[in-house]
Design a protein around this nucleic acid. Structure first.
Lengths: 184, 184
DNA sequence: GTCTATATCAAGATAGAC
DNA sequence: GTCTATCTTGATATAGAC
């Protein structure tokens, strides 16, 4: 057996960037493989299919955000406004427009109608995000209003990341974060 | 010659809906053809290629919005706030989330890095939108601030349309419109 | 202008050697 | 675990009859 060239987690990190910049159908197995220094046939030792790669990749990103960012929503040592600010700052680094923006947002528009497994995976990602924001807004608002503000904030943030590709203006994401944090 | 089954403008109307619901790569020529009651070979009498169909479709939507919606920005018989409100109401009907949202927003995420011709086409669409909104905000704000608010408003609106697919909540687009119109 | 082939090609996936 | 080679499919596009 030849030595292992790359680990599955390393592949996932590369796949995130290629998928979010080029879309699902715009990314071929050959292209993914080349970026990993492999031949496309070798990919099937790590994943069962192309669809599997994307699903694993999204779940991995989902886990990362839960552990590193959304957890902050429940940190009682910080004020609600500080939690929101900290989460949004971190999100703006992970979901940078000039790096292709939000993988899951992009995939939602491309694949939402394609399969129930994708749909469930995409919805879980946004549900976890929503839960975190609702928790923070709940400290100041009643549950119905908190839900509405959380949805509105995610909408605005995703819009900023998405349109950042067209309007090359770094200030806009900052303004969006400011508008959101001003609510709590 | 058999009689003409469908006109090119009719095809464009159908193509908009299929593309925005299923994405560019997720839409095959056969599927487009079937929806038009044609065989896929017949499509090449109307368009030179699949890429051509999308470009013509986007340009057609662009023209429609310019003539029917963005024109309102320059209607001196209405107050600036009324113009903004009227445009946003009309946009929310044309770009409904439950109909696949904004074709051009969706295509931006899928195809922005694929070809310069697409990129130019997508950018023109948003530029025309931006010009209209900047014009309205300019009645109350200085040019730099007007530009910023126009970009922010488009971001928020696109975000609302996009996330409307995930959060099935009709109130959110209304809240977004209210936030935008409150600025002028 | 539409149809029925068909050419062509790209891409996902598999088999078997090393 | 990776490679080369190959299978198979689905999709764009073309040719030519009606």
């Amino acid at each position: 057996m030849p030595r292992q060239k790359i680990t599955t987690p390393e592949i996932i990190g590369i796949a995130i960037n290629i998928f979010r910049n080029n879309g699902y159908h715009g990314t071929s197995m050959a292209r993914l493989a080349k970026a990993c220094g492999l031949m496309k046939g070798s990919f099937y030792n790590h994943f069962t299919s192309k669809e599997d790669i994307l699903l694993v990749t999204i779940k991995s990103l989902n886990d990362y955000l839960n552990e590193r960012i959304f957890k902050i929503a429940y940190d009682n040592e910080l004020m609600p406004g500080e939690r929101l600010q900290k989460m949004l700052d971190k999100l703006s680094h992970v979901l940078r427009s000039d790096q292709g923006g939000c993988l899951v947002g992009n995939m939602t528009l491309e694949l939402y109608n394609s399969s129930n497994e994708f749909k469930a995976c995409l919805e879980k990602y946004f549900q976890d995000w929503l839960n975190a924001f609702v928790h923070v807004f709940s400290e100041k608002y009643k549950s119905k209003k908190a839900l509405k503000l959380a949805q509105l904030s995610i909408q605005e943030f995703e819009g900023a990341v998405m349109m950042g590709r067209i309007f090359k203006n770094d200030e806009l994401i900052k303004d969006t974060i400011q508008n959101i944090t001003a609510r709590v």
